[in-house]
Structure formats: C-alpha cells, structure tokens
Amino acid sequence: MKNSHEWDLILKYLENSLSSTEREKLYKWIRSDQQNQKTLQNIQKIWNTPEIELPEPRLELAWQKCIQAAGIETDSVPQDRPLRFPEKNSFILHNNWSKKIWRYAAVILVLILIPFIFSLFTETPPLKELHVLKAQKMEVTLSDGTRINLDAGSTLRYPEIFTAQVRQVYLSGEGYFEVTPNPDQPFIVKTDNALIRVLGTKFNVRSWHKNLDPRVTVAVLEGNVSLRAENQPRASRKVIISAGQISELLPNEAPSLPRPANILKYISWLDREMHFENAPLGEVLDQLERWYDRDIFLPDSALVHNRVTLFIEDKPLTETLQKIAMMNNLTLEEENDKFIFSYRK
C-alpha cells in the first residue's frame, strides 16, 4: 500500500477515531482489493497482540526507598499500614468484678455483632435492572468504571456498587463489555447457562436463549476471558478465550474450543450491522424485530428453520426484508406497520 491517505485512516482506525465518512472510505478501500483486506487484518492482529509483561511494580517498596533517598520524614506522609491500637489500655480496671462485667459485655457485643459482620460479607446488595427497549441501544457505566454497550431487547442486572469479592452482573441478550481491570475483584458475567469470568478486558457476549439460537457466543477483543457452563462441575470444562478468539456454548454442553475469528464481525451490531452465515431465518428475523421494533410474519412457522446467509446493514427494514423474500422465494407486503411474507404464487 503506497497511498499515505489510507495509512492515515488506518491510524485513526486503530485509535477508534474514524468519522463515519472516513469509515466509509476505509470500507471502500478494503472492498476494492483482497490484499487490502488482508493488510488490515494483519495490522489488527499485530496491534491486538498483548505485550510481554514486566514483573508487577512494587509500589510500597519503591515508595519506602524514595522516602529514604529523598530524606522525607515518615511522620509527614500517610502510611499504608493497619492502624495500631494505643499501647496503653485506656480503661483502668479496678477489681475482678468489673473485669467480669467487661468480659460479659465483650461476649454480648460480639454476639450482637456476628450477624452484622456476617451480613457484610454475604448479603448481596439489591440489583438494578436495565432493559433496553426494541429499536434502542444503550451504554451504561458501572460503579467500577466498567462500560457496557447493550443491544435492543437486552436486559442487564447489576449491583449499584460492587461490594462483594467478585463483580457479578447478569445478562440476557447481547452486550459489549469493557471491564476495568481489578485483579482483586474478578468480573463475572452470568447468563442463563454460562459463567464468563474476566480480570480486565474487552469482549462481546451474545446470549438470547431462543430456541433458534440457544448459543452463548463470547468474542474477545483484548485480554483473556474464561467461559464455562454454569451447570457443569466446577472447572471441568473451562475454556480460556484470548484476544482474537471466540467460543460458543450450547445448552448442556461444554464450551467449544476457542478459535480465531474476525472479532469485528461480532461487535458490528454496535453499528447496526450483522453477519449471518447459514443461520436459521428465525434468528435473523428475531434480530430484525429487536432492531426495528416491527412485527414480521411468515406464511408457515416451519420456514424459521430455512438457512440464510445475509449481511444486515443499517438500512430501511423493507430493503433487508425484500432480500430475504427473494432468497426464500417469498413475497413481502407491508400492512399496518406489520411485514407479512407470503408464498409466491
């Protein structure tokens, strides 16, 4: 590639700062030549490769050394140490009797406190529920800074503040996650039958639990994610999905071995675009109903099993449905906000 203009677009693409016209230009360039497509894929691959990490920084040690070398008095800076109790007991106990009283009081106090302390660790705070209406999408930021983009029809349940040892949220539908790293408090996404565990990364989860699409699909952009079936014995079949890979989980099965895939395809829904390859027609229509909030009818429910390969773009619904009609030898009518397919006569 010689043209410097394309490289400018690629730089912006890597920064996620393309405008929509620039993105169009880049599309065009990719479509114009297989080689261009390959080039961009390769750049993406290189870019997504994580670095080989250095040992973790030893912040406290470094700070102590710094204090010494700079001659800073330790009294003048806050210390990250547990509070110490005063050396001398401030209570003066006069005799055995009052000692006993204190002992009983201490026991009673502990008994009173037990349920309270216990509840601190076990009680799950009330969850907030967020449902994205059809034809909408939504971005939500959680208390730890984690950002989630939700597609139309999705539901997310999450605590207002993460207080437990893990950060756990519940998803039904499709969401793109950018999880704030925190090694001390893993982030877990629960769906109907899957547990997805991460430390800090970017990934997409698709999980609609429909008959026609019972899969949970996890696609990872950055970092590592572990996926396992919820009802399976712990860790028996857990897969680690790395950046650039996807894994799928069917009900009552173990997750598929992670395989490399074009991850951008899996998050193109953010842009109201989606690829279907040999997918049941019913799944495609479900997606369209969620995006456009219109009812679509087939002449025969058996047709939902027809396989279609289709690329949906952000275009008027009629155009996409016309394509589907053509592919399945159907006709399309629009009637009172409803779309009705019929058999061709």
Partner: peptide
C-alpha cells in the same frame, strides 16, 4: 470484512 464503528465505545 466489516469494520465496527468503535467511536461509540
């Protein structure tokens, strides 16, 4: 291949 518009994110 399709490029996602990540500007949203």
């Amino acid at each position: 291949e399709i490029l996602a518009d990540l500007t949203l994110i």
